[in-house]
Design a protein around this nucleic acid. Sequence first.
DNA 1: TTAATAAAAGACAATAATGTCCTTTATTAA
DNA 2: TTAATAAAGGACATTATTGTCTTTTATTAA
Lengths: 144, 144
Amino acid sequence: MFSKSCEYGIRATIFIATHCCKEGKVGLKEIAKEIDSPIAFTAKILQVLVKNNIVKSSKGVGGGFMILKDELKSIKLVNIVNAIDGDSVFLRCGLGLSNCSEEHPCPVHEKFKFVKKDLIYMLENTSLEELSLGIKKGQTFLKY
Amino acid sequence: MFSKSCEYGIRATIFIATHCCKEGKVGLKEIAKEIDSPIAFTAKILQVLVKNNIVKSSKGVGGGFMILKDELKSIKLVNIVNAIDGDSVFLRCGLGLSNCSEEHPCPVHEKFKFVKKDLIYMLENTSLEELSLGIKKGQTFLKY
DNA sequence: TTAATAAAAGACAATAATGTCCTTTATTAA
DNA sequence: TTAATAAAGGACATTATTGTCTTTTATTAA
Ligand code: FES
Ligand code: FES
């Protein structure tokens, strides 16, 4: 569904979100440990998230990554996916035709339309806030 | 969503299906041309489909690929996807955790559940017959 | 102002996916 | 039984993805 980069990216973002407000910044090492991801690779992905203004970062002693409290509600899954994997998951033709449209539909176009619509709706309406809530409550997990 | 192999595989299968019954067998060259795919790569994918009994093949003069008429209804999209990409698309955790279950859910598990269910339902209930019908009628396309 | 810290950035390495080419095997028809 | 044909199979090449390592830059505190 998503690339490995995107999976790590979503997990990292959720983890950072759970640490927002209270402890402030979280370091790369802790993030990679808590989401069980390759540390250097995770660093690269975080750079993309920072460039896309989803995550804030600061260098030096006491530095790390964070997400502003008042952005937890407005940041949706779709923003993270878009930043890392682009919009191909939603827009691409399911059979790989160069462009997916009503005018030149592939055989699965009508069928896929609804699945894609569901996916987009879900991604656009799932906020970082609710995702991190499950972690805080110990109901959901970010590794294994 | 699917791998390139799977996309080519679905397109090839649909094309073969449209040629079933009437002209009998279709050659690799024609298939690759009609679905605009790399010919040698397509050959590999067809081998997988033949091994999975989705497509029948015969060598030598007049040989080629075909699908039995009475199997057009029973072959579903899910069979093709499963043969080429396996079942990871449906069963894999959306965030890459090692196993997706109710007992150890990731933060998006509940959200993804419904999207995946929709996808599976669609794949299990879409037959080759209906997919090839659109091509025969000139309403859907297999390339560009 | 120096040392310590931590992210950013760039170069490189390993792996997997995609794609090509050549040889072999089976089938048909002359 | 030979020649032509077309898929099967194996080896290889290319590209994209994933992952690592080292250096640079920014920040803080001593
Ligand atoms: S054209 Fe293939 S999904 Fe729209
Ligand atoms: S555990 Fe992640 S989708 Fe089920």
